[in-house]
């Protein structure tokens, strides 16, 4: 499976070392396999495996109030499944969420079942007024994750990073 181990490691290191993330919630998806394994194997990080992504909003909500920095790993369809929690939980209560969303269904997608979600991901982020950046080059990953966390913290609102094919998938 040509998911990039190197890019996954850069993302994980940025979350843990640069951003001080100590709790990560995740629902498995192909592009996230290495990231989830890294979180699982790291004794300093609590990995919470979810049944559905919206739970992660509640878990990060609680972690934030309890003083622990967290991040959420999900596919864009998981973001779609989380929207009520994001709006009537995190946005209503001004909770910073650091959401790392694998951007399936963008240019280069071969799986037909990912394409509708891909088409609505950015319009939905914009409709919800969630600031987002692309992670598509290992060179800027650490800086952009740190900036997303900083903005989430200063606004007390969610921010999103879209994990792109060029970063996560090595077949091109």
């Amino acid at each position: 499976m040509p998911v990039s181990v190197d890019s996954s490691q850069i993302i994980f290191d940025a979350l843990k070392k640069d951003c001080g993330v100590r709790l990560i919630s995740a629902l498995p998806e192909t592009w996230l396999v290495h990231l989830i394994r890294m979180a699982e194997e790291d004794a300093d990080v609590t990995l919470v495996r979810l049944a559905k992504e919206e739970e992660g909003v509640g878990i990060s909500f609680g972690a934030h109030l309890a003083g622990v920095k967290s991040a959420m790993l999900m596919q864009n369809h998981g973001f779609l499944a989380s929207i009520n929690g994001i709006v009537s939980g995190a946005q209503l209560y001004r909770i910073p969420l650091l959401m790392l969303i694998s951007y399936r269904g963008e240019f280069g997608e071969r799986d037909p079942w990912q394409t509708e979600g891909g088409a609505v991901t950015e319009p939905l982020l914009e409709a919800l007024r969630i600031p987002y950046l692309f992670l598509d080059d290992p060179e800027h990953v650490a800086q952009r994750i740190a900036k997303a966390q900083t903005l989430a913290s200063s606004t007390n609102k969610p921010t999103a990073l879209l994990l792109c094919r060029d970063l996560m998938w090595e077949e091109g």
Binding site: V48, I59, F61, A63, H64, L65
Partner: peptide, 12 residues
């Protein structure tokens, strides 16, 4: 999400 929020606090 109240139970998930409680889980987040309890684990943290």
């Amino acid at each position: 999400l109240a139970s998930s929020l409680g889980l987040g606090i309890a684990l943290s």
